[in-house]
Amino acid sequence: MKHPYLTEDHSIFRSALRKFLLKEAYPYYDDWEKNRMVPRVFWTKMGEQGFLCPDIDEEYGGSGVDWGFSVIINEELERVGSGLIGIGLHNDIVVPYISEYGSDEQKKKWLPACTSGKMITAIAMTEPGTGSDLAGIKTTAKLEGDHYIVNGQKTFITNGIQGDLVIVACKTDTTISPSHKGISLIAIERGAPGFSRGRKLDKVGLHCQDTAELIFEDCKVPKGNLIGDEGKGFHYLMNKLQQERLVVAIAAQTASEEMFSLTMDYVKNRQAFGKNISQFQNTQFKMAEMATDIEMGRAFLDGLISEHMDGKDVVTKVSMAKYKLTEMARHIATECMQLHGGYGYMEEYQIARRYRDIPVASIYAGTNEIMKVIIAKNLGL
């Protein structure tokens, strides 16, 4: 399917990226899963080829292109495996905070390393007792002279182990009401005094994507690492969550397309009772239902991406896409595993990995229940 927002330049870019991934990712992905880590050398190779942060201005090492190139990167990485979601987070979720809200000094200091792959980024919002209720975070940052002193703990942090620069949501004012007005974003670099990593978390799926606990104990951070203005962190987060949730929706749609393709190949070749299982009516109906859901999902998503690239406020539609497409992907994972029979439960078949990786998409970047709350609120309910 030709996406309406893509041009010939995008197609050339996709071809180059696929060629790169066929050489540098597909042959090694199973090993990365076993080792529970995507090696840093893959990040630097991505950077060398211009596949990191392509929308960043050329003066900082990017290509200054439109967001359609980032969509392609997210789609092609998802085709390799969901465990590469940390790269999309770096490109399209974390780095935009620096490129849009960072000072000239911060951009010059950090962005070239982000586009080259020498610096891996993360964003730390979730805490052990605080998930979707962002205003309820407990991590604090107290200004003392030229430094902030940060105390608190974060969990479920994507790129938490390998992250060199972590944008941390913290309370710089614990007395203000409403409490979300006291939230600020502070960039904390690897090696900062008082900054340590906790456990590398052992997840059901996304095995090669490193997820960790982060600990800040009287962590000393230069005042110049404040992103934007103090007290505007919640506002910045709300502005960027639209793109974060859209990235999740893109991954879910792509995963659904991949699982369907895998299953189509399987049912056409697997025989039972003397014929291919694709010839059974139950199989045909299941495949027809999934194909319909996928086509409808893609049409909605492509229109949404176009609107987002045009700078439109599509928070309601993004919430719909994030909710509906992740639920669709979870349903398709279950149906495709069932159609694979016993082989679908074997690790040597890719559908087993997909089945493990998909469910968390309905949880992170705001649970699907929160998506429904947003949709209902924006409907005027």
Rank of each mutant, 00 (worst) to 15 (best):
Y343N: 00
C170L: 06
R197F: 11
F234Q: 02
Y349S: 10
L304A: 11
L301Q: 08
I85G: 01
I85M: 09
Y323A: 14
H180V: 09
I87G: 04
N159R: 12
H331S: 10
L84G: 05
V71P: 02
F273D: 12
Y28R: 01
G231A: 04
K317L: 10
N151W: 09
L237G: 06
V247P: 05
M320G: 07
M371I: 02
K377H: 13
G83Y: 08
Q243H: 15
F280R: 07
P112I: 07
K19S: 07
A192D: 08
A187F: 03
G342N: 01
D92K: 05
D313V: 09
V247Q: 12
N368R: 06
E75P: 10
E189W: 07
I188S: 09
M1T: 06
L237E: 09
L226V: 00
G163T: 15
G274H: 07
D57E: 13
T172L: 07
I120C: 07
L339E: 01
T140S: 13
K2N: 13
V204R: 05
T367K: 00
I370W: 00
M296Y: 04
E369S: 02
D66I: 14
E58K: 15
K142W: 07
F69D: 08
L143V: 12
F20E: 01
G198I: 03
L89G: 07
S82G: 11
I183D: 05
A329H: 04
M328Y: 08
H340G: 01
I12N: 02
E59V: 03
I332D: 01
M1W: 05
I332G: 00
A361T: 01
H147C: 15
A288T: 03
N269Q: 00
D202P: 00
Q243I: 15
A192C: 14
D202Q: 00
N74H: 05
R199D: 00
G344E: 03
R298W: 06
G117R: 15
V80I: 14
T158A: 14
A192S: 15
P359Q: 07
S132G: 00
G198N: 02
E75D: 10
L165E: 08
K372E: 06
G160K: 10
I358W: 01
L52F: 10
T175G: 11
A192E: 13
E76Y: 14
M287I: 11
K223P: 06
M296D: 07
Y26I: 15
K34P: 02
K19H: 00
L379V: 03
Q281T: 05
Y101Q: 00
K23A: 03
H147G: 06
K138T: 09
D31S: 13
L143C: 14
E144G: 11
V94F: 13
I120S: 04
K372L: 06
R199C: 02
S11N: 13
V318A: 14
